[in-house]
Design a protein around this nucleic acid. Structure first.
Length: 260
DNA sequence: ATGTCGCGGTTCCCGCGA
């Protein structure tokens, strides 16, 4: 079984690339983030023509997540139980489903903007709701994983230059402790292999030639319970998809599993 | 070497978020 996660930075803008990537990589399940469109406007017919069922969750210009599956899509849940609001709104940042006997969540963790900003506190609250979901769903024998854009680099090795990020979001101790809490809840960080260079970055800023200079970050993560992580046979970052005109600023992370 | 991108509204540029 092949599962993948990809922040597409607008599914509408990325549709030609998304369809080509699905045809080329043939994941059984794909977790998408940053749809930037509504549930209704999601291109379900186009991905359906490739054999995928869709659980999309979007409200418009920002955020939005989806699960695409060609191995079944059951027990769909939109939003984390108890997911915190931002400015009075529960944003579309999480969707869960059971696909081919594996329980999966596609998540888009809040960015945080600046340390001390209300969005940063919201980010940490959001992680706590995610941790509670892991405790509720992920501690049994069923393979379980949370895939998506976590907006946190787990270690200093996961950013191209730690000095540049000093004092910024994505690398602070409270954010990294939120990831550690997920590991304490039983999940393992399924670290993919890079297809080039030494670090498996998943995101490179559009600005200042981030990709050609490999000024990247590993912020798109796959956190799986023992039944999931123990079944992993391979994992890699598909940096090829970050190349060329019309790319997202994130590359897909692909995980192959030996599950029935 | 791609030396930002994408969206929606206040539209044919601007502000915002990332």
């Amino acid at each position: 079984m092949r599962v993948a996660t990809w922040n597409v930075n607008s599914v509408t803008a990325r549709l030609p690339r998304l369809l080509a990537w699905l045809e080329g990589s043939r994941p059984d399940v794909l977790c998408l983030q940053e749809l930037k469109t509504t549930t209704e406007a999601f291109p379900a017919a186009e991905v359906g023509a490739l054999g995928y069922e869709v659980a999309a969750h979007g409200t418009g210009r920002w955020n939005g997540v989806a699960l695409l599956s060609r191995v079944g899509l059951a027990d769909v849940v939109r939003d984390l139980p108890g997911q915190p609001e931002y400015e009075g709104v529960v944003e579309p940042r999480a969707v869960g489903a059971t696909c081919g006997g594996v329980r999966l969540w596609s998540v888009y963790v809040p960015n945080g903007r600046e340390v001390g900003h209300p969005h940063y506190a919201y980010k940490l609250e959001w992680f706590e709701a995610l941790r509670r979901t892991v405790e509720a769903e992920g501690t049994g024998s069923v393979p379980f994983a949370v895939l998506g854009d976590y907006n946190v680099a787990p270690t200093d090795e996961d950013v191209w230059d730690p000095a540049v990020f000093e004092g910024s979001t994505h690398v602070t101790e409270p954010e990294r402790k939120a990831l550690a809490a997920l590991r304490d809840a039983g999940l393992a960080d399924v670290v993919p292999r890079p297809l080039k260079y030494d670090r498996p970055y998943t995101y490179w800023d559009y600005r200042e030639l981030g990709f050609p200079k490999n000024k990247g970050m590993r912020i798109d993560l796959v956190y799986g319970n023992p039944a999931f992580a123990g079944a992993v046979s391979d994992a890699y970052v598909d940096r090829e998809e970050r190349k060329g005109k019309g790319a997202s600023d994130h590359a897909p992370v692909v995980v192959d599993l030996d599950v029935a």
